[in-house]
Design a protein around this nucleic acid. Structure first.
Lengths: 178, 178
DNA sequence: CTTGGCATGTAAACTGTTACATGATTCT
DNA sequence: AGAATCATGTAACAGTTTACATGCCAAG
């Protein structure tokens, strides 16, 4: 299960609680491996059971105690083994493209409108990525170095969003002035 | 379930058997909504049950009869209703990017090698898309018109593969001459 | 003689999503 | 007064993947 190894990778960079990891995933690995807190808590329990992680309870008042996870030697070995395996091909799942596929059932004005919405959505995601990247680029050297691969994956996200926007714009032009 | 509507869209363009549709999906909707024949046969049964499709059995010798599915009025209405709904955001799932995220555990030579493999993979997919697009562009006018939206979605695939390749190349350069 | 294409399916296992559950604190 | 944040989970449901099942024909 890739989510487990994603968690090992994150914890290897910096230990944290399920809550912490949920936030961190949302701003990094979540872009190319979407996951909810429910999955994450479950995966953490399993990793703990398998001896890949250690926990330390941090007592809190008025709310559940934080359970801080950190790597074990076994976890590090497991991650290493996984890293050397080949990756299955990327998967995209996009219902909007199914709709475009059926766009002969729309009139062209409606198509252009939907393409415009879609383009704005991708522009928004692009802006989120850019902001995040900009902030990361201002981190102090040591942190920037530690997270440089996270930064690289973000760059791919930026390129992909640009591809989407280009496509939306070109199609809009094609159907707008007809 | 989007797969069902993908099938309705395909059958609306041209009726066919489960087997046909599996092939057609593999070369069109499958690029952004991966689905196996098992899922497809199941979805077809359900659509039939819901009154969205009709079947006609075409007897065959030495192999199971072909069951040719076609649209009903109810199916067309259902598809129309679905088309007007908003689409949930795109999802990417990519285990290679999780690995890159953890690339501090690789030495740089290994990273460059893996990036090279990945780039070739994306180049291969790009070539497949280009070949398909080239063939579609040579179809006779009527068919080309009918499948023009399929052609458009293919173009997005091409752009996305180009984004991937650019990214792989840039990262390789960054880590190659260090 | 083995691989791939044709043609349909069932079933179990695994993964992912959605809804529910609790409860104090801080911000608007 | 209501929403968001912190912090952990359980459970039901939906969707996806993998393995199994059959059997003929054509091509290499």
């Amino acid at each position: 299960m890739s989510l487990k190894h994603a968690l090992l990778g994150l914890i290897d960079l910096e230990p944290g609680s399920g809550y912490d990891l949920t936030q961190r995933i949302r701003n990094s690995i979540g872009f190319f491996w979407p996951s909810t807190h429910q999955q994450i808590y479950k995966a953490l329990h399993e990793l703990l059971h398998e001896g890949c992680l250690d926990v330390e309870e941090e007592p809190q008042q008025h709310r559940p105690d934080r359970r801080i996870y950190s790597m074990t030697q076994h976890g590090r070995e497991e991650l290493q083994r996984w890293l050397d395996k080949p990756s299955p091909p990327t998967k995209i799942r996009d219902a909007f493209l199914i709709r475009v596929f059926c766009a002969h059932l729309w009139d062209e004005a409606h198509l252009v409108e939907r393409l415009n919405d879609e383009q704005q959505r991708h522009q928004h995601v692009w802006e989120v990525y850019q902001r995040l990247a900009g902030r990361m680029d201002q981190w102090p050297e040591s942190r920037r170095k530690r997270y440089r691969f996270a930064r690289h994956t973000l760059q791919l996200g930026i390129y992909i969003e640009e591809a989407w926007q280009r496509w939306c714009r070109e199609l809009q032009e094609l159907y707008a002035d007809k």
